[in-house]
């Protein structure tokens, strides 16, 4: 199954205006924003969609009231779309929507969409570093620390589900949709990568009691660690509530910084994730603070030693 990654996440929320503002401040490009919601896109066209929780066009909410109403995966071609429809049609209702996409529930009840991917190719340099022993990353006279840069998330990276049965949930994505296990936290669940991307994971499943079913977080990739630190600092200075980070994960190697959100999920800034193919052997360990990150910081106010000695 040539699933290329997440195209869009659709939320049904209590406070539309707050969510619209939040995602704009996060750095996404706002489109069609109104009291009814909006679409907030990254540079490659992947997005988060906000609607009011009572919007009749939304798929039904999970019994827990979780705000995520639909996860839309992109696929490479029509053949993949047809193959998914045929596979899922064996044991569940598969709806064909007017826009050509298909819709069905996974084994945990999350509503999934599959569509010809909206992800546009982008060509923007990554953050570059200079290090003795290697060719300069930045040309001579090009500065690395520019506080004025515009930071727009590049692409929708991954979503993390709380699921009541991570084994069953994992089986669905592996056996029915061809996802691979990149790595695994034994006591939580697997990091999953669909076949159409090299990204370490686009989906991570966390085993929880049923009353917790929903979303832990989602995130977009930024251009590098400096962008991530600057974006998170700007976000915190706007009054948004940091939850965890900044830091760098071990599985996936991605830099992270998590914030609370009015969607009632964590929202992460992410940068520099590992790439894997099918020659990779999944690692496994019990999740812990030590296993989760190589370091974890807290932003403090700007400061300098000494002041002006004159």
């Amino acid at each position: 199954m040539n699933i290329t990654g997440l195209d869009s996440l659709v939320f049904g929320v209590d406070d539309v205006e707050a969510c619209n503002q939040y995602l704009t401040d996060y750095g996404l490009i706002p489109n069609n924003v109104s009291a009814a919601g909006g679409t907030f896109t990254a540079l490659d066209g992947t997005s988060v969609v906000i609607r009011h929780r009572d919007d009749p066009e939304l798929p039904p909410a999970l019994p827990t009231g979780a705000s995520l109403r639909k996860t839309i995966h992109g696929v490479a071609d029509q053949a993949t779309l047809n193959a998914i429809a045929e596979e899922l049609g064996k044991d569940r209702d598969v709806r064909r929507l007017a826009d050509g996409s298909i819709e069905a529930e996974d084994d945990m009840g999350f509503t999934l969409g599959f569509q010809l991917s909206c992800r546009q190719p982008i060509s923007i340099p990554a953050e570059k570093v200079n290090a003795p022993g290697d060719e300069p990353g930045r040309p001579v006279n090009v500065i690395g620390a520019d506080e004025s840069i515009t930071i727009v998330p590049r692409t929708l990276s991954h979503v993390v589900y709380f699921v009541p049965d991570s084994k069953k949930a994992e089986q669905f994505y592996i056996e029915r949709l061809g996802f691979r296990v990149a790595d695994r936290f034994t006591n939580l669940g697997p990091f999953l990568r669909p076949q159409g991307t090299l990204d370490h994971h686009t989906l991570f499943l966390v085993d929880t009691p049923p009353e917790m079913q929903g979303v832990e977080h989602f995130t977009f990739h930024l251009g590098g660690p400096t962008e991530l630190l600057l974006a998170g600092k700007r976000f915190q200075e706007k009054g948004y509530e940091s939850f965890w980070g900044p830091g760098r994960h071990i599985y996936g190697s991605n830099w992270f910084w998590y914030f609370n959100s009015p969607m009632g999920v964590h929202v992460e800034f992410d940068a520099d994730m590992d790439l894997h193919d099918d020659s990779w052997t999944a690692r496994e360990i019990d999740a812990s603070a030590d296993a989760s990150q190589i370091f974890n910081f807290t932003l403090v106010d700007k400061w300098m030693p000494g002041g002006d000695p004159h």
Partner: peptide, 27 residues
């Protein structure tokens, strides 16, 4: 122990009828 606001002083839902946790949506 998770902090509950999503922004400074934003602890309530839009109607100001419930306390919400902006980490995972508890009401």
């Amino acid at each position: 122990g998770t902090s509950m606001a999503w922004r400074k002083d934003r602890f309530l839902n839009k109607a100001h009828s419930r306390v919400i946790c902006a980490a995972h949506g508890a009401q």
